[in-house]
Amino acid sequence: MVIVSAFKDGFTALRANPILLIAGLLVGAGSQLQYVDHLIESPYLSAGVSLAWLIVFPFVIGGFIGTARAAIDGTDASLTHFFTVARTHYLRLLLATVVFVLLVFGTAIGFGLLGFILGIGSMALTVIHEMAAFVAGVISVLIWLVSILVVIMFVQFYDTAIVIENKSVTDAFRRSVGLVRSNLKSVTGFSVAWLVLLNVFFIPEYLFQLTMTDAGPADVLPIDLGIPIAVLLPIGIALSTVGFAYFYTVYTAYYMRLIAASTDSQDSV
């Protein structure tokens, strides 16, 4: 099974090439930068850091995918290779990342407006039947959420298409959509498993987010864990480092198996 094989490939590659953890550390530490305004109370600096991270992230992800591919193939998985691949594909990945963000936000806004219209209808429906209005409201929210997730699922492989197959920005999105359409059941199962397992590694980060709000972990969890920020932050960075390194290696391995399978099917026709 492609999904199981990809997870095995990721474990084998990461165990044989701990260099992948360095890229994971960059992302793990970078993901914590979004909380800088809460720590130093400077929203302008936070906005600057977030923008800088958007610019740097394509470089990191490009280098990581290239290094993960080399590790899976058993070739040159080194820092030199990391920076070479990152520089080679950076501009296309930066532009594609901006397009990806615009697609997701466009979908969210578009279906958000649809949900707003349905919400107005739900308010009118309240006069007739409160339960029916509640159900209609829940359905509109679910439609909004599912629509965003579907768009993400179909275009998610744009970065691997650029790095592994050297596609242009537009061809990368077409390639991603085509692969997902041809392997819809497999990709859906992989995406759900990948997302759920990845988020397990981000639990300390989510707890850290709660400490940055008025709620706090104790208001969400049945017990107060009593974990201070000074402990949650390094644990969050460590787990997100390992999580990113492993699961994005799995992500790369899965894409490589998808394109190999599609090539084999074309050759057999």
Results as ranks from 00 to 15, higher is better:
67 T>I: 02
66 G>P: 10
94 L>Q: 04
81 H>K: 11
101 V>C: 11
94 L>K: 02
92 R>V: 04
81 H>T: 15
83 F>G: 10
98 V>P: 00
80 T>P: 00
92 R>A: 13
92 R>F: 08
66 G>K: 10
102 L>D: 01
67 T>Y: 05
69 R>L: 14
70 A>C: 07
70 A>T: 04
90 Y>R: 05
111 F>V: 10
103 L>T: 06
97 T>D: 11
87 R>W: 10
86 A>M: 04
92 R>Y: 06
78 S>N: 03
85 V>D: 10
81 H>D: 06
90 Y>I: 03
86 A>N: 01
69 R>H: 13
83 F>W: 07
77 A>D: 08
89 H>T: 12
97 T>R: 07
98 V>N: 00
108 A>Q: 07
107 T>H: 06
84 T>L: 02
67 T>M: 10
87 R>S: 15
106 G>F: 14
101 V>H: 02
86 A>K: 01
68 A>Q: 02
83 F>M: 10
80 T>G: 14
72 I>T: 13
80 T>D: 15
93 L>T: 06
91 L>P: 02
67 T>P: 01
83 F>Y: 11
88 T>G: 01
97 T>G: 15
72 I>Q: 09
73 D>R: 13
68 A>V: 07
88 T>C: 00
88 T>F: 02
76 D>K: 13
67 T>G: 02
69 R>Y: 11
72 I>A: 13
110 G>D: 03
107 T>R: 06
99 V>Y: 11
68 A>K: 03
81 H>A: 08
83 F>C: 08
97 T>L: 13
70 A>R: 12
108 A>L: 14
77 A>P: 07
82 F>D: 05
84 T>Q: 09
102 L>M: 13
75 T>M: 01
67 T>E: 00
82 F>P: 05
109 I>A: 15
73 D>Y: 00
85 V>Q: 14
68 A>L: 07
100 F>H: 11
97 T>Q: 14
72 I>R: 14
93 L>Y: 02
102 L>G: 02
108 A>H: 01
71 A>G: 11
111 F>T: 12
84 T>E: 12
78 S>G: 03
